[in-house]
């Protein structure tokens, strides 16, 4: 039983289930699927600092923070209790490319040799974890949504701004992967 629950899911199971989050939240309480707003609510609740963007009644939007807390718990269940004991089955071409960038350990969801607390002290680790996280937060608010709010919810609702944002998410990701990351990995 545990073996079955520990297996990763193929895209044609996982994708449609992610799509069903859209009607689930609409039916549960007329809520629009999205995650990044929770980051804004955390700012509004903890460090509003008289900034216009954070001056609103965040308690009214608290559902999104609770939803995010649920995601953490879901991560515990699927990633710790029923952890997949095998490495992520990425393509052998990707393994070769990442090997060339210096990654040797392919166990777990993230490369443990970079994504650990110790590597925060190295320039490479700091850029990948802290600068990367900062860009995700800054970018998502500037773009008014993330991969959930734009790429899934907005695209499903046929919103042109969401299609534009999604194309730009990919443009940024391609620029990083193909042009900038090779330099960062050499640091």
């Amino acid at each position: 039983m545990k073996e079955i629950l520990s297996q990763p899911w193929p895209w044609y199971i996982a994708g449609p289930l992610i799509g069903l989050m859209v009607p689930l939240l609409l039916f549960l309480g007329n809520k629009t699927f999205g995650i990044s707003s929770s980051l804004k609510h955390i700012c509004a609740a903890c460090i509003p600092g008289n900034i216009e963007l954070f001056n609103y009644n965040w308690k009214k939007e608290a559902w999104n923070v609770i939803f995010a807390a649920g995601i953490i718990f879901g991560g515990v269940l699927a990633g710790v209790v029923f952890e997949n004991p095998h490495a992520v089955a990425i393509s052998s071409n990707t393994v070769a490319d990442l090997n060339a960038l210096g990654i040797k350990n392919f166990n777990g969801l993230h490369p443990g040799e970079i994504f650990n607390f110790h590597s925060l002290l190295s320039l490479k680790g700091f850029i990948l974890i802290v600068v990367g996280g900062f860009f995700v937060g800054f970018g998502t608010r500037y773009a008014d949504g993330c991969t959930s709010g734009h790429s899934i919810m907005g695209m499903a609702n046929l919103q042109l701004p969401s299609l534009i944002a999604t194309c730009c998410f990919f443009a940024g990701g391609l620029l990083m992967t193909w042009v900038i990351l090779p330099f960062v990995m050499r640091l």
Partner: peptide, 21 residues
């Protein structure tokens, strides 16, 4: 912002390997 913020978000997505969810 959809464009400029979107590109910045993409840069961060490829660095961390993670979006907010």
């Amino acid at each position: 912002g959809n464009v400029i913020g979107g590109i910045i978000f993409g840069l961060g997505w490829a660095l961390t390997g993670a979006c907010p969810g």
